[in-house]
Design a protein around this nucleic acid. Sequence first.
RNA 1: GCGGGCGUGGCGGAACUGGUCUACGCGCCGGCUUUAGGAGCCGGUGGCCGAAAGGCCUUGGGGGUUCGAGUCCCUCCGCCCGCACCA
Length: 810
Amino acid sequence: MDRYDPKTIEPRWQKVWADEHTWEVSNEPGDERPKAYVLEMLPYPSGEPHIGHLKVYSVGDAIAHHRRRTGHRVLHPMGYDAFGLPAENHAIRTGQHPRESTEASIAEFRKQFREWGISIDWSREFGTHEPSYYRWTQWIFLRLLEKGLAYRKEAAVKWCPKDATVLANEQVIDGRCERCGTEVEVRQLTQWFFAITEYADALLDDLATIDWPSHVVTMQRNWIGRSEGAEVVFRCEELGTDYPVFTTRPDTLFGATFFVMAPEHPDVLRMNDSPEVRDYVNHALTSQAEDRGAENREKTGVPLGRTVTNPVNGEEIPVFVADYVLMEYGTGAIMAVPAHDERDHAFAVKFGLPIREVIGGGEDVQAQASTADGPMVNSGQFDGIGNREAFGQIVDWLQSEGKGEATVNYRLRDWLVSRQRYWGCPIPIIYCDICGAVPVPEDQLPVELPDVQDYAPKGKSPLAAAEDWVATTCPSCGGAGRRETDTMDTFVDSSWYFLRYCDASNETAPWDRDVLDAWMPVDQYIGGVEHAILHLMYARFFTKALADLDLVGVREPFARLFTQGMVTRDGAKMSKSKGNVVSPGAIVGEHGADTARCYILYVGHPAEGGDWSDDGIEGIHRFLARLWRAAAEAPAGDADNPAGEPTAVLRKAHWAIDKVSRDLGERFATHTSIAAVIELVNEIYKGRDEMSAMPEGVSQLRFAIATAGSLLFPFAPHLGAEVYELMTGRRVWEEPWPVADPALLESDSFELIVQIGGKLRDRIRAPAGASKDELEQLAMGSEKIKAQLEGKEIVKVVVVPGKLVNVVAR
RNA sequence: GCGGGCGUGGCGGAACUGGUCUACGCGCCGGCUUUAGGAGCCGGUGGCCGAAAGGCCUUGGGGGUUCGAGUCCCUCCGCCCGCACCA
């Protein structure tokens, strides 16, 4: 009883919250409080939680508690993104079923979350690998299929040879597999896709309707990569074929002096299949991303000995194959305008091709491509018109001639969702020789994942080995059928989990529409920036598609997003190879959950990376111990009615209420919130003897201690609850968030800064609430000021009430 | 290269609409307490000069706006993050 001991305090409160189901919220109508859906990104359960988990759930929990205590009905659930490669790779090494290792890990996560005292509604918990969940993942897949948003096609796709599976474009970083870093290959395969590109404009436009960090918005905007321009048809008379190109600069059409095709373009060899061309194409196809993508790389290419016709002036221009043109973007062929495009300029210089300026007033285009605006030149009927206007006029003219039209191009590709892996959600499709790809009927869902002996990928899904499972009957004709053996990308699982939480135990539907609409959207989403494109784009796409299917009532899933920074240790990134990993389990075991949670929120603004140092955590522990001791040793009294003249500690308590409310409610500044409570506790310590000596001081002291516990509760829930109960006998989470008394925020006097010409000359006490005139008189009455102003002419006097008086003199 | 962010003590970092720069913590120094402690408590701590009072300087460098700039503007330097031959 004489020492702060988290080992006894923390389990006691955890038991109260578990026994009373304190954090569960009902879906039944009748609760009139406004709703707040606070959600942290669900963890991927692998091994034990790491320090990043401690951080994200500490931040989210603080927000959830704050919302509850400001009168909201808070949904704060938890689940596990359980399918995925690491568990499967572990299975390949050890033979242990991925379900076993995953569920062991889930059990560990759950245990630690409870030990951390995170306020989760456990009644809504699930893992995405449970048939009762993925049944609905499959159900949604079939809805998308019906709507034409899921489809199967043969395409050149990215293949990771190490993981032996295809990858989505978003999972390829600099030509390498996002997971294992292996360079990806391109393969021609028939795969399942989701038509996310149909939502490209909506995904772009609706960014304006959500409150997200600007860098995430920018990343999504870049990824979607919308460009407005025109498709223009160049005809090759010799082959009798039209070649459309996409350009964002139709105003430069008259400056096109050659034409370039990507090496992958299917017509390259039709144009010219000489050994030289074949060599170039083969070389370009085999040399992969790393050198092809290299910046400012020397341009290479081969002339194809053919020409195409420029539709605006009938000019015949030569055709080249060159690897600076990408097959994936636009049409895989371009019109080259060396005067106004840097890349084309470099190519023209190297191959001695003409450079014709078509927009005047720019730089010397023979030396350098100009991108400046100006009047059109060398452009026939368009000469003299400003290029911006000419843009539209040329498009109109092309359209009327049937040689082109205005189009929009996107960088975004459809989402490839097939994976040739075991540990994922089976795709609910049956192939039949007669009926083709047939959806599994709804009443046969879920298509459960069968057990297999060997998880190792062999270029086809390990599921193919489960022959009893694969062989089935066609739901359409009753003949022999074979199940799809690919599984879905795990990002599909996490693209709708936030919807399932709303109605997690519904067995007849993924959710009830009324229940869903009552909770959605997520009001505050919290997670790492690493998902800025992948998860956050896919989840937005799902929400929009489901809205169009009339299954959800919102078009954006996450109204407000907060991205937290990475935790480093002593300035370095934590990694197993460096051996500098801090395990939350160890820290919590040593210092207690409250200390660990407060420290991680205290080391810096949560949006930025915090630096963990083992020395620093002692300071927080000391502070918590001081607060506990203050409560344990406080003289008896009444904490609710602080009577008498306000003492310094009472003012400090109100100041802390004001500060923490603002920081936690609006600025997410948990570190300065905790600093404010530390200051309050220091104030309590400083004056506790004299205050306890006077009767009204006791109640003010106890009020201040209770306030500290109350304000600390979102960050250190166990100690906050303990201290508050010691002072008031009540449960802090059932109490409203305290409101600062404005009258006590300011003291009755303050230190007035008196400056002459912006330089500090004197400090004097001034009464709070004094008028500008009174402050000015007071300042001018100061002996020091009088002395220094002697013989000078006062030009003007600036008065900032509550702060300073500045005299400008000459 | 393009877009965005940042630069404050020995360290992590505060500073709301321009108004006492360095809150809070770590570290360090001094003291108290303890059988002892790497435990606890109290005090001090931006730099330079000074016994002190006090003075001068200080938010990456330079310039500007202002009575007043960490904060706003220009410029240079440095770091971080995204995008990167996207036509």
